[in-house]
Design a protein around this nucleic acid. Structure first.
Length: 324
DNA sequence: TGACAGGGGGTGT
DNA sequence: ACACCCCCTGTC
């Protein structure tokens, strides 16, 4: 059983910065950069390593037991079947100088296609939280309440992917028995995120203990809502954008912004145009839309950027974060 | 080193 | 508009 790296055909070359922005720029919260620069990530029941070769092409690795399933799942996850170069070319960059600048700076940026339910869970955790904090919450949820993914075997080929992150983090303090807990101890196994049926069984205080704060109630209530309606989530994923968004907004803790994130990053709906504080700043500063309300900005986004507004949004978002 | 404010990628009332 | 809950971060 060897942990071999394989080229991923079908994705154009990209820079390390753009790969980082794609995996760890606010779409997904379970990617971790190893000291050697490779990325390890978990979604559904899969653990995957990603890195770039000298030409900027993606290479991947996975435990031999999962290799075949991973190859297929990775195609979906990274949208390998979607021609992002053509999609970005269809955006109105010819008449929008700022968009043109964003596209050029983050060439190769992709929208992920994550599992729908996991995306919903992730973004229910996200309200007024920064990426670092969201990643911590999600890690705790998985560690404490998600099914283990891999045997504890020390021969596990991915053990190298999980080496403790570098020396930047201070040693645990005796006064804080649970510092950050971002890196799992060497003997721990990886866990998947709890499913919605599993979440429905978790008492709210235990959710709160995962640093969720007031978001714990949203998750508990959403879990109960979904448990009472089998098939509701799966059906929602198949509905047209507007109908799917309206349904998601019925869930406690899901407003327009979260619904749009779930549809964009968890269902491939490029019409979705999440308006968060970064987009608010960008549209105010670069597009002169100071004082507009989020709902108005979302309307502007769809009108100005068209049916792929969500893709444009991700470029604007990346640019604003970098140049804040 | 260790406290102490400030504010955070929203939602609901 | 403001509370919600709590933790990361910068600062002294």
């Amino acid at each position: 059983m060897s942990d071999s790296w394989q080229p991923l055909a079908g994705v154009p070359a990209l820079s390390g910065e753009v790969l980082a922005e794609t995996l760890d720029g606010g779409q997904a919260f379970r990617w971790h950069r190893e000291p050697d620069g490779t990325w390890s990530g978990v979604w559904a029941h899969l653990v995957v390593g990603l890195r770039l070769d000298a030409d900027g092409r993606i290479e991947w690795s996975a435990p031999a037991t999962n290799a075949i399933a991973t190859a297929s799942a990775l195609t979906t996850y990274l949208g390998v079947d979607r021609d992002f170069a053509a999609l970005t070319d269809a955006l109105p960059w010819r008449s929008d100088a700022h968009l043109a600048r964003c596209l050029a700076e983050f060439r190769g940026l992709r929208i992920l296609r994550q599992p729908f339910g996991e995306t919903l869970l992730s973004f229910l955790c996200s309200a007024t939280k920064q990426i670092v904090q969201i990643k911590q919450i999600v890690a705790l949820l998985a560690e404490r309440h998600g099914a283990p993914l891999l045997p504890l075997s020390t021969l596990n080929p991915l053990s190298a992917l999980r080496s403790p992150p570098s020396t930047l983090s201070p040693p645990p303090s005796a006064l804080r028995p649970q510092p950050l807990a971002l890196s799992s101890p060497p003997s721990a196994s990886l866990h998947r995120l709890p499913t919605w049926p599993e979440l429905a069984e978790i008492p709210e205080p235990e959710l709160r203990a995962c640093r969720l704060g007031f978001r714990a109630r949203y998750i508990a209530e959403t879990a109960r809502f979904l448990a009472a309606r089998p098939g509701w989530l799966e059906e929602t994923e198949t509905l047209p954008y507007a109908a799917a968004k309206a349904r998601l907004c019925e869930l406690p803790g899901v407003g327009e912004k979260v619904a749009d994130c779930v549809l964009l990053f968890g269902a491939g709906r490029m019409e979705a145009f999440p308006v968060d504080v970064w987009i608010l700043k960008t549209l105010a500063r670069r597009y002169g839309l100071d004082g507009w309300r989020p709902a108005q900005l979302a309307q502007f986004g769809r009108a100005h950027f068209g049916p792929l507004a969500g893709l444009a949004q991700q470029y604007l978002f990346a640019w604003e974060r970098k140049h804040r």
